[in-house]
Design a protein around this nucleic acid. Structure first.
Length: 481
DNA sequence: TTTTGAGTTGTTCGA
DNA sequence: GTCGAACAACTCAAA
């Protein structure tokens, strides 16, 4: 397997990062096939330490569930904290491991780390090997006719829609343990949930953690909702989506498994039945983009936008974060985010459009908040989504596409079900989800469910006009504003 | 190299 | 109420 002759019976370190599953895992399948002892390890390194509050909390759940899963397979998950390279080298020395294997990630932080780790391990005489599995299609295997990368989704989809995806591999029945287990930290001692001042117990009610839960979600979705997915996915009040983003983000289910299961379920389905798979491929597209243009995570993807007069963080953005803009659809979305750690897809667009267009706020302000709140946080999708809404990104919405939250509410939440679910004010008997927001909100926010619902931050037509004027000025070129 | 068709998710206005 | 046009070109990807 390695490019040098490995010690035939030396352990392999399996370095897990965002791939907490045993099934459909190319690295694990290859490792199990060697017959060698395997030492699964997670390193709480600076990249993971830099996650937002909700992702860190969710990471703790993923680690705990995966450790249990490994234990059932006769193995363990060794936990260590520190620089990835230092930890891996130390563990190799302790266990006599000759190789370190991992699944590839493609975001700039991970790539920088993994590149350095790989070359240093090799220089130290260890084998270092990375595997696919995080995405359906390795980013460099999807190319335009000219050999470039895709910057528009539809041609990307057409390029991959008919491809063969390697069939999922079953989880190995067991993982061979090493002669002696190295010491491990306890995940509770890491305090990964400490940043969740909103009350982890509230978000926990909505999380579905681990491989088995992910599979249940997939089964339930295919049984009852796939057929209606295209029609109903736009209505945030309906349970129309799969909810799998949370599990995909942490690798608790393989995209290849979803792809194959959906493909099977599409047989005999009507027009638009492939729409779910199309959405799954959006996730691949985001990783494709972040691989080819890493600056998507931090800078305007189109440099022409560098002159746009974004407003920076301030009181208006703070109201947005707190779900107190006075715009019910936006506030419902922001409260859903805070209480559940996720947000329905259309709600994400509306909340993001409101921040970047009506409030003219830098998309990075929103990106950071989502990064702090989403238990399905994914660096690639988050960056692509924000830049798409702002207009600065690939295949972006045209500047004049400004969502009207009131109009959207009429269209997609006509009965007000979604707004009532998350906005307590004005309801005689608000649902738990709406009250949970007030239980979760920091005392410092000074919120009271009995208080009047806030007045709008900005009149919608005025916000729209102001945004159009700003975009018009940008189009006129730098200096013309 | 040039041409051609197309491009996730919207809103408003006037007929 | 419903419908089509305008909004603005521009870039991308393939032929």
């Amino acid at each position: 397997m390695t490019d040098r002759d490995p010690a035939a019976d030396a352990p392999i370190l399996l370095w897990f990062r965002r791939d907490f599953r045993l099934a459909d895992h190319p690295m694990i399948a290859a490792a199990a096939a060697t017959g060698r002892p395997l030492v699964p390890v997670f390193v709480l390194d600076p990249v993971a330490e830099g996650y937002g509050a909700a992702p860190k909390w969710r990471l703790e759940q993923a680690i705990a569930a995966f450790a249990t899963r490994l234990a059932a397979a006769g193995s363990r998950l060794i936990l260590r904290r520190g620089g990835a390279l230092e930890v891996l080298r130390a563990l190799a020395a302790e266990t006599g491991a000759a190789d370190v294997w991992w699944s590839r990630l493609y975001d700039p932080d991970s790539v920088a780390r993994d590149t350095a780790v790989k070359s240093a391990l090799k220089a130290a005489g260890l084998g270092a090997q990375s595997f696919p599995g995080h995405v359906l299609f390795e980013p460099w295997t999807v190319a335009t006719g000219q050999g470039g990368f895709y910057q528009v989704y539809s041609p990307f989809w057409r390029a991959v829609a008919g491809r063969e995806v390697a069939a999922p591999a079953a989880a190995p029945s067991g993982l061979r343990p090493p002669a002696a287990w190295p010491a491990s930290d306890r995940v509770e001692d890491w305090g990964l949930g400490r940043g969740m001042r909103r009350g982890a117990g509230i978000v926990a009610k909505h999380a579905r953690v681990g491989e088995a839960a992910a599979q249940d979600r997939l089964d339930g979705f295919l049984d009852t909702r796939l057929a209606r997915y295209k029609a109903e996915r736009d209505f945030p009040g309906l349970p129309a989506t799969s909810g799998l983003s949370e599990n995909l983000a942490w690798g608790e289910i393989a995209p290849a498994r979803i792809w194959h299961a959906a493909l099977r379920a599409e047989t005999g389905g009507g027009k638009g039945i492939e729409h779910f798979r199309k959405e799954l491929v959006w996730r691949d597209f985001a990783w494709h983009l972040i691989h080819h243009t890493p600056h998507i995570a931090t800078r305007n993807w189109r440099a022409a936008w560098d002159g746009f007069p974004w407003r920076q963080d301030g009181p208006a953005a703070e109201r947005w974060r707190r779900g107190m803009t006075g715009e019910p659809f936006v506030d419902a979305a922001m409260r859903e985010l805070y209480v559940t750690g996720t947000m329905q897809n259309r709600a994400r667009m509306i909340a993001a459009s409101y921040l970047t267009k009506h409030l003219l706020t830098d998309w990075r302000v929103g990106l950071r908040w989502f990064e702090d709140c989403l238990i399905d946080w994914d660096p690639a999708s988050n960056a692509m989504g924000w830049q798409w809404v702002a207009g600065s990104g690939p295949d972006a919405a045209p500047y004049f596409r400004i969502f009207n939250p009131a109009g959207q509410a009429e269209k997609f939440d006509a009965d007000g079900r979604y707004r009532r679910r998350f906005i307590a004010e004005g309801q005689a008997a608000p649902p738990e989800t709406a009250l949970d927001f007030f239980r979760a909100a920091p005392r410092a926010w000074g919120l009271d469910p009995a208080a009047d619902y806030p007045a709008p931050t900005i009149e919608l037509a005025q916000g729209r006009t102001r945004a159009l004027a700003a975009y018009e000025a940008l189009r006129g070129g730098p200096g013309s504003a």
